[in-house]
Amino acid sequence: MLDTEWPDSWRGAFRIELRAEAIGLAWRGWPVLPGTYPGAGDDTESGSAWTRPVPVHEDWHQRIGAHPQQVAAWFTGRPHSLLVATGTMIDAIEVDDQLGRRAATLLRATGHPAPIVAMPNGRWLFLTTSTDRVPSVLATNENVRWHGEGSYVPLPPTPFEHGVVHWRVKPEIWGWRLPAAGAVHEVLVRALLGEAADHVTAQPVFVAGSSAA
């Protein structure tokens, strides 16, 4: 967690890293938003005390797609959490640790593992292209959450209760291409149903031209 007792030099370095990541993602077209952070108290436009990252601005829906220069200004001076809005060019499927590990193993078996984020609360985020639906078996499972239009997710190195959000599979490893939502959903369904990795046939997961660069 972003400990408020850290020396100023450590907090300063962490703030710089968050700002650099936010600007880099914004230049690649990712819909970056500033989020609340530990130690901020009620010092946000939303007036909410920090428990987990939420958008700083109440009108965050209108701020999606801000220019990188605006993103840089948001992250200047404060260690805002790094959030990305979903439902435009990126979606995320949030699952528990057990399902996340099974799905990651199956994705590796295809030869094209998707960008994956891990949160300190034991939840995993599988990033995909945007879509308007998910399979019913995922939509009705209480341990699965689809982040589409109107939602957002934290990205590394956002502070979180008991730790920091981190990458399990970085997007740059695959040239910043986002995997097709349907392909990842299919793998998650297989993992949910208990399919083993040795039963998976290698298949393309990425959509041609789906680079977020």
Rank of each mutant, 00 (worst) to 15 (best):
L2N: 13
D3K: 06
T4N: 05
E5M: 11
E5V: 07
W6H: 05
P7K: 02
P7E: 03
S9C: 08
G12S: 06
F14H: 11
R15S: 12
I16A: 15
E17C: 00
R19C: 07
A20D: 15
A20G: 14
E21Q: 15
E21D: 10
E21F: 10
A22R: 07
A22G: 00
W27V: 10
W27R: 15
R28I: 05
G29N: 02
W30V: 15
P31M: 02
V32E: 11
V32L: 12
L33V: 07
P38A: 09
D43H: 09
E45N: 05
G47N: 01
S48T: 14
S48K: 14
R52F: 12
R52K: 14
V54S: 11
V54R: 11
P55T: 03
H57E: 12
E58Q: 14
E58Y: 13
D59W: 04
D59A: 02
H61W: 09
H61A: 09
A66F: 03
H67D: 15
Q69V: 13
Q69T: 14
V71L: 05
W74Q: 10
F75A: 01
F75M: 02
T76K: 08
H80Q: 06
S81A: 14
S81P: 10
L83N: 06
G87V: 08
G87Y: 06
G87D: 01
M89G: 15
A92S: 14
V95Q: 05
D96S: 09
D96R: 05
D96F: 00
L99M: 09
R101H: 06
R101A: 08
A104P: 08
L106N: 07
R108K: 07
G111A: 04
P113R: 04
P113W: 08
P113H: 02
P113T: 00
P115D: 03
I116S: 02
V117R: 01
A118H: 12
P120K: 07
P120A: 04
G122V: 06
G122L: 03
R123N: 05
R123E: 04
W124Y: 15
L125R: 06
T128S: 04
T129S: 13
T129L: 15
T131V: 11
T131K: 02
L138P: 12
L138K: 03
E142N: 12
E142W: 11
E142M: 13
N143P: 03
V144K: 01
R145W: 11
R145L: 13
H147K: 14
H147T: 00
H147L: 15
H147G: 05
G148V: 01
E149K: 11
V153Y: 11
V153T: 10
L155H: 05
L155W: 08
P157K: 10
P157I: 08
T158E: 06
F160L: 00
E161R: 14
V165I: 01
H166D: 07
V169L: 00
P171M: 03
P171S: 00
P171D: 01
I173K: 13
R177H: 15
P179A: 15
P179W: 04
G182L: 07
H185K: 06
L193Y: 11
L193F: 01
G194T: 08
A196P: 12
H199Q: 14
V200S: 02
V200G: 03
T201W: 12
S210Q: 13
S211E: 12
A212E: 04
A213G: 11
